[in-house]
Nucleic acid binder design. Structure first.
Lengths: 128, 128
DNA sequence: CCCATTGTACGAGAGCTGTCGTAATTCTAC
DNA sequence: GTAGAATTACGACAGCTCTCGTACAATGGG
């Protein structure tokens, strides 16, 4: 069998996605980071392409939370598992939600980076 | 003393508000309900005006989570504690986030209500 | 002062969450 | 078939979360 259908992954249907679950999935820093990378870098990435500060087991856990809450879809291709945002489903169910969360995360990242630049040089003197 | 200053409540400053914390605060059904009621019914409501399906202790807990994450502000007036959304701070930090979450919650509420109407009368529990 | 109203604090318990390490599974390449 | 790479599954653990009940504090009116 050359098909990848042997390993099917459970996804919630569009109707089963709940806004509370989506918000909860996005409220973890690691998962938010995954989603931001998916949104910015590519539509579909293998899990191994993410450089996360946790073990593989923990990564698997976070990807599963994202998938089971309806934020991402996953499928196998060879030994790799590719992940992509369920942009269409989310935009249909909750228009603008994903974009504003991603925008908020970007703004916060910029703000925190700027804070670090203004804080550090004076006191600590350590910079990247 | 007629002042209400005796009981001060700790709030995060605008700069301390984190998007992960806001999303986590909004990911609980009870808290999302509180926020929706604050957004729709009034700008400032006493805690006792919320008809929540939990005990007073639990309500206090949820209001504290919302306050400490920066979603709401609270102050005392007499024996009452009034709560209001920090709309300005949130809109400045995360433009559009609060609105899209509230919109998503409204859409989902309508959708679930419609599903219940089409599910129940016809088959009374059997669905494809 | 006493009391009703309103909300807090504290302690507790059940359950979920994030994390890890190790063992197992699936696919590709030889 | 064998080896290797990518990922999952399982069991375990500490910590957090949601919930409650009871006891306590602050305000306003008699």
């Amino acid at each position: 069998m050359t098909s990848n259908a042997g390993r099917a992954l459970a996804h919630p249907s569009r109707e089963e996605i709940r806004v509370e679950g989506v918000l909860h999935a996005l409220s973890d820093p690691i998962r938010l980071r995954i989603v931001r990378q998916l949104a910015h870098d590519a539509d579909e990435l293998a899990c191994s392409r993410f450089d996360l500060p946790v073990s593989k087991s923990t990564s698997t856990h976070h990807f599963r939370v994202l998938r089971e809450s309806g934020v991402i879809q996953q499928f196998y291709r060879g030994t790799a598992k590719l992940s992509g945002l369920r942009t269409d489903d989310l935009d249909t169910l909750f228009p603008g939600l994903l974009d504003s969360v991603l925008g908020a995360a970007d703004l916060q990242a910029k703000r925190l980076a700027a804070d670090a630049r203004t804080d550090a040089p004076e006191t600590a003197g350590l910079q990247g």
